[in-house]
Every structure is written in C-alpha cells, then in structure tokens.
Amino acid sequence: MNQKRSIFLLSTLAFGIAFLYIPMVLLIFYSFNKSKIVPIWGGFSTKWYVELFKSPEVWDALTLSLKIATVNACFATILGTLAGLALVRFGRFRGRTLFSGMISAPLVMPEVITGLSLLLLFIWLQSAIGWPSERGFSTITIAHITFSMAYVAVIIQSRLAGMAQDLEEAAQDLGAKPLRVLTDITLPLLAPGMLAGWLLSFTLSLDDLIIASFVTGPGATTLPILIYSRIRLGLRPDINALATIIILVVAIGVLVAGYIMLRQQKQRALDMQMTAEETP
C-alpha cells in the first residue's frame, strides 16, 4: 500500500516537473544550435550568444526594461507602502472601504483594459496640457507604477495586519512622536515586506508585455516587446539565447535567496536552542 502510493506520488512528481521544465530545457538546448532553423539540429555552437551581444537593439531594449523596472519598483514601493499604512493604521476614515476596494482593482482588472485606459489617459493629457509629448519611457513607467503599487499595498497591508500594534504603542508610550514611531519602529519592521514588494514590482515590470505595448511609442522598445516582435517573424535562435540568459539569471537569484533563507532559519533554531539551555 505504502509502496504503491509512493510510486504514484513519484510518477506525478516526475510528470509535473517534466511538464514545467521540458520547454525550458528545449529552449536552452536549441540556443546552442548551429542551424538557423530552430527545430533542425545543426551541431553545437555559441554563435547566437555572440550575435546577441553584438546586437545594439537587444542591449537598448534590455537597458530600457531595467531602467523602467528600477524606477517603477522604487516609486511603487513608496506609494504602495503609504497606501497600505493608510488603510491599516489610520483607523476608520471617510471612504476607507472604497479606497481599499479600489486599491486592489488593478490586480483583477484585465491588463488589456488597464493598458487601453492608460493609453486613453495619455492621449487625452497630451491634447489637454501637451504632456507627454511622446510616449515611451515615462508613460510605460507611470503605467507600471499604477498596477505595481497595488501589489505592494496588498503585501504591506497583510504584513501590517499581522504586526501587533502594541510595538508602535510601546514606542509612543516611551515618548516617540508619531513620525518618529514610523521611522524607528514601523518602517524597519516593514522592511522585509517592502523589499518583497520592490522585487515583485521589479519583476512585474520586467515581465509586462501587454500594458507596455499599449502605452509605448515609436523608439521605446522594452525587452518583452522586442522578443515578441521578433518571434512574430518566426522562431529565432538568438532569442533562445537571450531567454537562456534570463533563465540563468533568475535561477541564480532563486538559489541565492534560498541559501540566505536557509541560513536565517538555522540561526533562529540556534538562538532558540541557546535560550532554552540558559533558562533555569
């Protein structure tokens, strides 16, 4: 019985992993294909990587994407944190329920709608006040901030709700004015949540194709837009090479994060053991 179940479990596990990773393995495999036609194996080669690094288009798109992602993550973290704080810590205020519902709307709104409405806004603004004169970096960044900050606000909200308010009260009781409580106690304790929000915003922005393609203009091509437009002309090995590099970067990131978490866990277990031994 036990044996049987474990075979069943193992096969589902194997199937699941295969389902997730075979496409990626294929992608990596074909990025080293000498032949220009993707499904035909023409021998091992790294020439697509070399070509990739030589292509200014790819570099421009990558820098633009990283710039947008960084600026977006910073603004989204600040605005989202403020929104989360307002929702959880300011008690009841007029329109709180409405605000709290509206902040999570971008999470469920179809991206096409968000993209379309933002595009409309930018066009309307252009004709009304003359700004933005052209769509590109700034419009994409603004569009990304609008939905990223909703994610950050949700993360901050849940972290604040789990954080006992008595720490903030204790600080006040010891003579800290509200602003001081925020900088001394609330923000340091929120830091992990803010970091998580920053990283999530960064990835969301780097990942976004739909909204960006709505609000971008000529001359501003983000990496996803570049990949998508090239793929439309047919599968290309240089795009495979680019995707392989992205997979590598993500994998390294996950491994590092996992290692740090493991170390923290071990440290915590050690601390617990230490206090247990000292207690009379």
Partner: peptide
C-alpha cells in the same frame, strides 16, 4: 505591555 512589546 502584556506581550512585552519589545522592539525585535
């Protein structure tokens, strides 16, 4: 405080 509320 009952929970001691020490700043972690």
């Amino acid at each position: 405080f009952q929970s001691y509320a020490l700043f972690p």
